[in-house]
Amino acid sequence: MALLKSKTFLLFILLALLLSLSACTVAGKPSIGSKLKGGSAGLPSQLLVLPVTVTISEISAGGLVQEDPVWSKEGEEAMTFALREFFAKDPSTSLVDMPELTAEESELVHEHVLLYDAVASQAFIAANMPAVGWSHLTNDFHYTLGDGLRFLKQKTGADAALIILGNDSISSGGRKTMVAVAALMGVGMPLGSSRLMVGVVALEDGDILWFQNCYAHGNLDLRKAEDAVVLFDKAMEGYGSR
């Protein structure tokens, strides 16, 4: 009884609970482009997988964040594995690999991915932050990248492109120790976080057919395939039940 009443013990329990929670917070609901509102008829059957971009950084004990390009590469490989695992279960969708591109074409694709980042962020605000005032756009979701990627449809025969942007910050050993000790003192410090933005974009006109943002706090490591699968599956929740 004395142990149960001990403040230190209670703190340990709280810490354990916090650290053990592996919930991936889906930030908002998936924003389904107006084309998909009609049901599964709008879904692409051939999906071109654009190069996955994942940025992974380390947070040091003192909070210094440093990107690690080797880890980022591992994260991209893990996420590529995760997306293939997901679509392997969907017989109505086949994945198409990127074809050989010229330097200009690669630059154009890269620029469209950057545009997607800006468009998706804006669309996210519209869909999930009504107080800001853009929510009327969700009734007529028309966000688009324009038709600049149409050449990829001509080159590959794919209907749409799958765009994946992710980032992850991983705590160093020293950081984890610091967090644990801080928790004992009653001070909260962030361990790290993982974020994934997934979008399906029609190649003919650049319309965003589907997009979703997903966050997880502190306990996923996107270098690992199994964690990438957890996050990707969460991000694609609702894609199947169109």
């Binding site: 003192g62 909070g63 210094l64 020293g174 610091m178 003192m185 001070v187």
Partner: peptide, 17 residues
Amino acid sequence: RVEHAKNSTAFANVLTL
């Protein structure tokens, strides 16, 4: 500079705690 920054800020956190 990076190594020192990691150490400095870590040490600073320790003292704060």
